[in-house]
Nucleic acid binder design. Sequence first.
RNA 1: GAUUCCGUAGCUCAGCUGGUAGAGCAAUACACUUUUAAUGUAUGGGCCCUGGGUUCGAAUCCCAGCGGGAUCACCA
Length: 567
Amino acid sequence: MSHSELSEQELLRRESLQKLRDLGIDPYPAALYPVDAFAADIKAQFEDGKQVCLAGRMLSQRIMGKASFAEIQDASGRIQVYFNRDELCPGEDKTLYNEVFKKLLDLGDFIGVRGVVFKTQVGEISVHVTEFQLLSKSLRPLPLPKTDASGVVHDAFTDPELRYRQRYVDLVVNRHVKDVFIKRTKLFNAMRAFFNRAGYMEVETPVLQAIPGGASAKPFMTHHNALDIPLYMRIANELYLKRLIVGGFDGVYEFSKNFRNEGMDRTHNPEFTAMEIYVAYKDYNWMMDFTEQLLEFCALEVNGTTIAPFGDHTIDFKAPYKRVTMRQSIIDFTGFDIAGKTEDELRAAAKGMGIEVDETMGTGKLIDEIFGGKCEGNYIQPTFITDYPKEMSPLCKVHRDDPSLTERFELMVCGKEVANAYSELNDPIDQRERFEEQLKLQERGDDEAMFIDQDFLRALEYGMPPTSGLGIGMDRLIMYLTNNASIQEVLFFPQMRPETQGPKIVLNETETAIFEKMQSEKQLLLGELRAHFEISNKVWDTSLKTLTKNQLLTVFKEGDLLLVKLN
RNA sequence: GAUUCCGUAGCUCAGCUGGUAGAGCAAUACACUUUUAAUGUAUGGGCCCUGGGUUCGAAUCCCAGCGGGAUCACCA
C-alpha cells in the first residue's frame, strides 16, 4: 500500500510513531509488562490506595491542561485512569506528559500504567497513574461509540458487513458482542462438564472422509495428492462415533465442525458446529430425559437462569419438556391422522393443506412436509417430537410398537430443530436394506439420499450394543441462549464473500522514499533524484522499475536529458 | 434462487423535484490540575462502491456490475 492511499488520520499516526522513535521510545517493546490487576476487579473490590499495574487499550482521553483522564480497556472491562503532569514529570522536562501522553498517544494504543486506586470527587473508581508505558501503537483509528449519561449509545459501530469482516474491531468496541462469545464458550464448557461427570469420553474423528456419511447434505470436496483420491469434508461424524461404540466405549462425544456445501442464510453457515454423543445400552426415552437435564444445566451455567428471551418469545429450558408423537402433532394441527395411510392418500391430504408436493416424494417425505408446513412452527417452548416415519430416518431403529415408525425424536425450540436423537439402528441387515432404499430414492430423483458406507456396515456386523445417540446444533442453541436471530452473531468469523480489491501496489521502504521525494518535487532530473539516495545501483534500478511499472512515475527524455516525473 | 432496502469523511448519518459536499463524534492547533458523551475557540479531512448512459451539468435520474442486510424459497 502506498502512503498516498492512507487517510489523514493514518498518516498522522505514522508520524507520531516516528516521533516516538525519535524520542527513544520503542512503540512495540518486546519485554513483558508485569500486569497484576484487572479493571473489573479494581472496580468490584475497591481498595483506596492500593498499588496496581494494569494494561490495555486507551479508548478515551479527556485532557484538561496539566491533568487528564483516560480510559483503559483490558480483557475484563474499562477503568478510568488519572494523569497529573507534575507528578509524572517532577523535573523541568515535561516531555513525557506534554508530548508523549498528550500528543503522541492515540486512542486505541495499548499502554501499561502503574498507579494507586482512588475515587474521584464525583465518585468514580480510578487509578492515579504514577508511571505509564506505551506497549503497542495503533495505526488505524477505531470506531468510538459513546454512551451518554442516560445510557444511550451514540455512533455505535453497527454496519454488519464491517462488523463481521473486522470482528477484531467489533470485539474491541462492542462489549455485548464479546459477551456472546464468552457465553458460547461457557456453553461448551458446561456440556463437557455434564458429559464428563456422566463418565463419557470426548473423542476426535476424521474431518476428511472418503465417504461423507451420517447425514444428507452436499459435501465440500477436496483431493489428497499422495493417495490421489477424492476426499470430502465431513457433513457429520455419526458413523465414526458408532464405530467407537462397536469398539467397546460406553459413551463417546465430539464437538464436530461440519461442512455443508449449501445455501447460506441467517441460520446456516457452510461450516457449523454440532455436538454428537452416543451412549451404549440406552434408548431414545432415556436420551430424552438426559437431553432435558443437559439443556437445563447448560442454560443455568450460561445465563444463571433457565429462562431465555428470544425475540418476542420467552423460552424456558427447565426440564421436563413436553413429548408429542409426530402423528399426534399432525392430528393436533391439521385434524388429519397419518396412521395407515397410503402414499397417494398422504399426497392428496398434503395437497389439500396447500403444501406443494411432487412425484418424487415418498410417504416419509410427505409426512415430513406436512409436519414442517403445519406443525413445526407452533412449538415455541422446548418440545420433543417423537416417532418419525421410517423412510426419513435411515440410521434409526424401527419403533418397538410400530414397524412403519422409528424411535427418533427431535427437540423443537421456537419452531426450529435444535436436537435430533435415535435409538440407533444396530441391526446390520436392516441397515443395509435402509441404505439400499436410499439408493432407490436417489434413483427416483432425491438428490439428498445417503451414500452406502460398506465399512460402517462391516462394523455393525461385528455387533454394536443397543445405543442411543443425540446431536445438538451448537450454533442454534447458543443463538437461543443469547437472543440472537442470526448465526453470524454467534460465529467469530462467519463466512463472507472475499473482499475484492484492485491489485494493490506494495512498495518497499526505498520505493516509498523515492516516491515521497517525487511527490514533493513533481519533476526532477534522473541523476539528481538518484543522488538523494545512498543505495546500490541494483537497488536503485529495481526500485525505479517498480515505480514506473506501476505507473506512479514516468521516465522520459527531453533532448539529451533524462527526466522523471510524477504521474 | 426470488423480492426488497442499503453503499457519502476514521465511525454514525443528513444531503429535497439534478447546480459540483454537510453535521456530530474522531483528528489537528491553542486554553484548561478530579473530568466523564468534559468544555471553549479555530483548522484540516471526500475515487459520494465501480462502470456505462441521459444532461450544459449527476452523490442525486436510468442501466449494468460488485458488496452487504432483511424477507421468502430451497437445504439440516
